[in-house]
Amino acid sequence: MSEAVSTLKVSLWRGGSDGRFKTYTVPLKANQTVLDIVTWVQRHLDPTLSYRFACRVGMCGSCAMTVNGRPRWTCRTHVTKVIQNGMLEVAPLANMPVIKDLAADMRPFFEKWVAAHGTFAASKTRTDAIEPIKPDEPARRAADEAIECINCGACYAACDTVRWNPDYLGPAALNRAWSLVNDVRDSDRTSRLAAISAEGGCHNCHSHQSCQEHCPQSLNPTRSIAGLKRLSMQAFVRGEINA
């Protein structure tokens, strides 16, 4: 990084859910990310600042926070692109409990991922022949797109329906379910469709598309959820699932 050319006032959330913002003055440098700023505060001003990160290159999905009111992956968000009126405000992700400072408790997020049957259920054993998968089939294409989710939680934090209905599974879990119902190797299709068709399932989605708007991977969970609604209705009409 280059020499510091100016400073920036940054407000960071401190404490639990009843905490408050605290303002720090940090050097503003070229090509600086929001995660760089948070790390600088912890290394130079307050070592008790808690936050979460791992890869720093946009692969692990650990560092998502609320930046000036929007959920973003902080390691790939350039400060100069998100400053508003010379200020930067960073808070933990919304729609999740706050552990401390900038670290949100992602347990509800991943519990819903499990509730949506987000784990792959193999239909074959390792002794079976490898099943050829044609990459250009529509179902495989749908699965391949949805599978790029890094589970950062930005969509979940941005979702109005999650805010209104704490039981709603949310876009990430449903997007994961969509990738699996399109995977011909998976054996859990019917019970997964039943899980995402229950109270709190895909039919609660209002298609506001905030998930699509805020996804750092430019995925479209709203489309995935619309696909699940179609498959769910087909299964319901055929009597394969009860709700």
Binding site: S197, A198, E199, G201, H203, N204, K229, S232, M233, A235, F236, V237, I241, N242, A243
Partner: peptide, 11 residues
């Protein structure tokens, strides 16, 4: 909202 209610509302 579940699949049954969705069916009746959209239907």
């Amino acid at each position: 909202m579940n699949a049954r209610l969705y069916f009746w509302q959209r239907g």
